[in-house]
């Protein structure tokens, strides 16, 4: 069923290019409304299955015992911390170079979700580190660079909301988001470039994963579920943001005509 708001006819600029096809708010609401269930339902199913599998079915580790089950949350949230920041940076580039109007709203909505998953990554890492390493926290290159990522998210969240003129906030936030991209390769390669307490990557595109399949499958399911969940939450927030912007516009127009 199509909601009325999704069918608002707003004329498109002639010859709308592919990138700006989704800039039209009415079209965005219509398309995203159709896509959202296909993100949200698989996200819920995969996350529930993956977490239950990891918690109850997957075997313990020969050294870590059951504490290994924490990785079914830690690894997907670490992936989303970096992946979410990359999507924030892509929105920043779309905003600065192509002046895409939805990219600004998307960046504002990605920020808090990415920050929350980064916090989850840090917290679960800590909860694993205490019993395994013997310390809640160490200042090695991996942990420190992820903490910097968390602060970049917080900085972005604050900066985009710090200006009276939202457009100036979007610009400042986009510049911060792009500058912070330098941190992503540092996070990824910190465990290879320097001596760190954090272990090197288990999963890689080239080599065999040094993880038994009975643990690998639930981990991959969790990564897929978390990623779809992230996409669904950001899409829903963006839908709300588009509608809220239209509400503000209408109220402003009413105030001016009175």
């Amino acid at each position: 069923m199509l909601r009325a708001v999704d069918t608002i006819p707003i004329p498109m600029p002639a010859g709308g290019r592919s990138l700006h096809r989704f800039a039209n708010p009415g079209r965005f609401l219509r398309i995203s409304g159709r896509v959202l269930p296909f993100l949200a339902i698989p996200a819920l199913v995969l996350t529930v299955v993956g977490l239950a599998w990891g918690l109850l079915v997957a075997p313990p580790d020969y050294q870590q015992g059951d504490a290994v089950r924490i990785i079914y949350i830690h690894v997907p949230s670490a992936w989303l911390a970096s992946g979410g920041y990359l999507s924030l940076a892509i929105c920043a580039a779309l905003s600065l170079v192509w002046r895409h109007p939805l990219a600004d709203l998307a960046a504002v909505e990605i920020g808090p979700v990415g920050a929350a998953f980064t916090a989850l990554c840090l917290a679960t890492g800590s909860l694993w580190g205490k019993p395994m390493w013997g310390a809640w926290w160490v200042w090695d290159a991996r942990l420190t660079s992820v903490l910097v990522l968390f602060f970049l998210y917080l900085g972005h969240i604050a900066l985009v909301r710090a200006f009276d003129d939202p457009v100036r906030g979007y610009r400042a936030g986009a510049i911060l988001a792009l500058a912070g991209v330098v941190n992503l390769p540092v996070i990824k390669f910190s465990v290879d470039w320097w001596n760190t307490l954090h272990q090197p990557a288990t999963l890689s595109l080239t080599g065999a994963p040094s993880m038994h399949v009975s643990m690998l499958w639930p981990l991959l399911v969790c990564i897929a579920g978390f990623s779809l969940g992230f996409a669904a939450i950001v899409t829903a927030r963006l839908r709300a943001a588009v509608m809220e912007r239209r509400i503000r516009g209408l109220l402003l127009a009413q105030a001016q005509t009175v």
């Binding site: 020969y62 290994v68 090197p200 038994h212």
Partner: peptide, 18 residues
């Protein structure tokens, strides 16, 4: 004054290790 264990990137069920 403090000893931390460093974990490697290997994840293995006890039966496989045995």
């Amino acid at each position: 004054s403090e000893v931390l264990a460093k974990h490697d990137e290997t994840y293995m069920p006890p039966e496989v290790a045995a």
